[in-house]
């Protein structure tokens, strides 16, 4: 125990979708903590609620029941605008389908979160260059997404996720659309970021990838079925109470 506040705490989180009178519970009574500097894999079969959980951690969605705390603050009690600006400053998203804006080039895509942080154009571009440099994509700064391969687009997306120096990077199947070699490179990039202190939560279907993370959470039908820290890696923190 570090004695410090966990970065994110989930307490009995439920998320129920109601469509046409039928209630679907996508996440059921999930509780765990994420500490600063962790790299966490979320696994589970399709439809088990991984993305739903990730959206809530990323402040795109709110729990139907239970609470999520970001640095001690209940996110449901924040205003919609406040959650938006926290997304800009404190959370970096990496998506399976990259989600770059097709009509903007790489550097403009990377700089986009800073627009919503109120950073001026000049500083945006300087920081976007640094961020592109960090993922090895500076030489493609003026290229548009359609001119880049999948792996290159994902690197640009990671640069975008990193630009505002977020508290946490959330990656939903970041290698899902890539071949295994490119996937491994992206994974290596994320692992390197984690070694330099970046907190990362990553959804994956690949057990091989999961074993490279210190900690793995498994979901089944929306419920948390295991939270393991493999013995070969020194444990940083045990299961949440």
């Amino acid at each position: 125990m570090t004695g410090l506040l966990p970065l994110i705490s989930l307490r009995s989180v439920c998320r129920t979708y109601r469509a046409d009178g039928i209630a679907v519970t996508a996440v059921r009574n999930v509780s765990f903590d994420i500490d600063p500097g962790e790299i966490l894999a979320v696994m589970g079969p399709s439809g088990s609620g991984k993305s739903t959980l990730m959206n809530m951690i990323g402040l795109l969605d709110l729990p139907s029941e239970g609470a999520i705390y970001l640095e001690g603050a209940n996110v449901a009690e924040l205003s919609e605008d406040r959650r938006s600006s926290l997304r800009a400053r404190s959370i970096g998203f990496v998506f399976q389908s990259y989600n770059l804006l097709a009509r903007h080039n790489a550097i403009e895509n990377v700089a986009l979160p800073l627009v919503y942080c109120g950073v001026g154009r000049k500083e945006r571009l300087t920081r976007a260059e640094q961020s592109l440099e960090a993922v090895g994509m500076l030489h493609r700064a003026s290229h548009f997404p359609r001119q880049l391969s999948g792996g290159e687009q994902q690197r640009v997306a990671i640069a975008r996720a990193l630009i505002a120096s977020p508290l946490i990077v959330l990656a939903d199947e970041p290698t899902g659309a890539l071949d295994s070699r490119t996937g491994a490179e992206i994974l290596a990039l994320l692992a390197a970021l984690n070694r330099s202190g970046q907190t990362i939560v990553m959804i994956t279907h690949d057990p091989g990838i999961a074993t490279q993370c210190r900690r793995t959470i498994r979901l089944h039908d929306g419920e948390l079925v295991s939270d393991e820290t493999p013995a070969l890696v020194p444990a940083k923190r045990s299961v949440a109470p």
Binding site: D81, S84, A88, F93, N99, L112, P113, Y116, A164
Partner: peptide, 16 residues
Amino acid sequence: TREIGIRRALGGRMRD
């Protein structure tokens, strides 16, 4: 629509 989703995820407020 997708662009709007991306902008919202990256921190764009509704008013933005």
